[in-house]
Lab assay of single mutants.
Amino acid sequence: MFKRLMMVALLVIAPLSAATAADQTNPYKLMDEAAQKTFDRLKNEQPQIRANPDYLRTIVDQELLPYVQVKYAGALVLGQYYKSATPAQREAYFAAFREYLKQAYGQALAMYHGQTYQIAPEQPLGDKTIVPIRVTIIDPNGRPPVRLDFQWRKNSQTGNWQAYDMIAEGVSMITTKQNEWGTLLRTKGIDGLTAQLKSISQQKITLEEKK
């Protein structure tokens, strides 16, 4: 169930391209415009997507990853294993993690069937560096609404905000991946996880038929 919630949630996290980005210092504006741009692209490019579902990787690479804190999220997933990894191991892992996100997020976007969304009203940021933004996803086919909290983090150097995690039903996506990959990290280390991520990233994206 959580895996499905995570995939549905990713439908609204794909941010804007650099040329049309919203105010990078306001995570609420980023979330709002990102959702609108993403849904528009999914709707307008269905012919290309249906002809070649792996085209979704391109959308992810162009529109999402430049505005997601990939390395920060990847380091959180590694936890204690990050500090013990060599620079070469980290570089290989982050490259594999990025390719994994292209496949995983692309597969999530393949679930698009006309969903709509509501974003919580903007709250004062103050001096906060981590801000959760509640998004409610509404399914046109009558499924119950899904309420999610996207975690946005302020870059201490640039002042810009980027998304790095999502919490559904009190469970963090980062925590879920830590639990899912924990045994592999304990037995085969970061190299074993890197190899698995490379394998997963090679899987073809498949479209979910409308139910």
Rank of each mutant, 00 (worst) to 15 (best):
E63R: 01
K177M: 10
L101W: 11
M166Q: 09
T25H: 04
M1F: 14
L101K: 06
P121E: 07
G142K: 07
Q69Y: 06
L10Y: 01
N160S: 09
K29R: 03
M173E: 04
Y105D: 06
V77M: 00
Q178E: 15
I119Q: 15
A163P: 12
M7S: 01
T194H: 05
F97I: 03
D127W: 00
T176M: 07
Q46C: 11
E63C: 00
S17I: 03
L101H: 10
P121I: 03
I190P: 08
Q202W: 14
T136V: 05
G142C: 14
G106R: 10
Y100K: 14
K3C: 00
D40R: 03
P124R: 09
E180G: 11
E91I: 07
I49K: 12
S156H: 11
M6F: 07
Y72C: 08
R143T: 09
Q69N: 02
L185T: 08
F39K: 00
Q123N: 15
T136F: 10
V135T: 11
Q107Y: 02
D139P: 08
P15E: 08
I138Y: 12
R186N: 00
T183S: 10
M7C: 14
V70A: 13
W161Y: 11
W152Y: 15
L65W: 03
R50L: 10
D127E: 10
S17V: 08
Q203W: 05
L148D: 14
D165W: 14
F39G: 04
L64Q: 03
T187M: 11
Q118W: 04
M173Q: 10
V70C: 13
P145T: 04
Y81C: 13
R4F: 00
A92H: 05
G159R: 09
T116I: 07
F150L: 12
Q123G: 05
R41L: 14
V8M: 01
I49D: 06
N179K: 14
R90I: 05
A92N: 02
A163W: 02
I49T: 04
T183I: 03
V131F: 11
Q107I: 02
S156A: 02
T194R: 12
R153Y: 06
A51W: 03
L125Y: 14
S172W: 05
P145C: 14
Q115L: 03
T187P: 06
Y82T: 00
E208M: 15
V146L: 07
A96W: 01
T38C: 09
R186A: 12
A163Y: 11
G126E: 13
K154C: 07
Y81S: 02
W161A: 15
L184N: 06
T206H: 11
G74T: 08
A34G: 10
L109D: 00
K71R: 06
K177A: 05
L184A: 08
Q196S: 15
P66R: 02
P66W: 04
T20W: 02
D40V: 03
P140E: 07
K102G: 06
F2M: 03
G126W: 07
L109S: 02
N26T: 08
T58K: 12
K102N: 15
I205R: 10
G79L: 07
Y55T: 11
L193K: 12
T25M: 02
L193T: 05
L16F: 00
T25I: 14
P15Q: 00
L109W: 11
A110C: 10
A95P: 09
I130V: 06
Y93D: 02
R143C: 03
D32E: 06
R41G: 05
N179D: 09
P53T: 03
L10M: 05
I133R: 10
L11T: 11
I59P: 05
T86N: 14
A75W: 02
M7P: 09
I49C: 01
D191Y: 12
K177H: 11
P145W: 07
R98W: 09
Y55M: 15
P15A: 10
L109V: 11
V60Q: 05
S156L: 13
A9T: 10
Y28A: 07
V68W: 08
Q196H: 11
Q107T: 11
G106L: 04
Y72L: 11
Q69I: 14
V12L: 03
T136A: 10
A104E: 03
K3T: 11
Q48F: 02
I205S: 11
T116G: 09
W181K: 12
Q115W: 07
Q69G: 10
D40C: 15
Q151R: 08
Q24D: 06
R98P: 02
W161L: 10
D165S: 14
V146D: 04
K128L: 10
E208I: 03
Q157S: 07
M1A: 04
N179F: 15
Q115K: 09
Y72K: 03
Q203F: 11
R134H: 14
Y105V: 07
L76Q: 08
Y112G: 07
K43Q: 15
V77W: 07
T86M: 07
L64Y: 09
T20I: 10
N26V: 07
I167P: 12
I130R: 13
L16N: 02
P132H: 05
D23S: 08
K102V: 07
A168F: 00
P47W: 12
A104V: 06
K198N: 09
M31S: 08
A51I: 08
K71P: 03
A14Q: 10
R4S: 07
P124L: 09
F97N: 00
A21G: 04
F97A: 02
L78T: 08
W161R: 10
A35D: 02
V146P: 09
S199Y: 14
D139M: 10
L184S: 08
V8D: 06
G114I: 14
R186C: 14
A35N: 04
L184W: 08
N52W: 00
S17P: 12
Y28C: 09
K188Q: 14
V70H: 01
Q115Y: 14
L11M: 11
A14M: 10
L184G: 06
S84F: 05
P140H: 11
A9C: 09
F97S: 08
I205W: 06
D23C: 13
F150Q: 01
H113D: 11
A195H: 12
R50A: 06
W181N: 04
L193D: 11
S172C: 09
F94W: 00
R147Y: 00
P132G: 11
V171H: 07
Q151F: 01
P66H: 08
E122W: 10
T38L: 08
I137N: 01
R153C: 07
K102A: 15
F39P: 04
A195Q: 13
E63D: 00
D127G: 12
T20P: 12
L16Y: 03
A168I: 08
S199G: 05
L5I: 15
T58L: 14
A120E: 05
I119M: 13
L125A: 10
E99M: 01
A22C: 02
Y164N: 06
R147E: 06
F94G: 10
K210H: 14
F150R: 09
T175F: 15
M166S: 09
M166G: 06
A73Y: 04
Q202R: 06
E99C: 11
P66N: 00
K83G: 07
L207F: 05
Q123T: 08
Y105W: 01
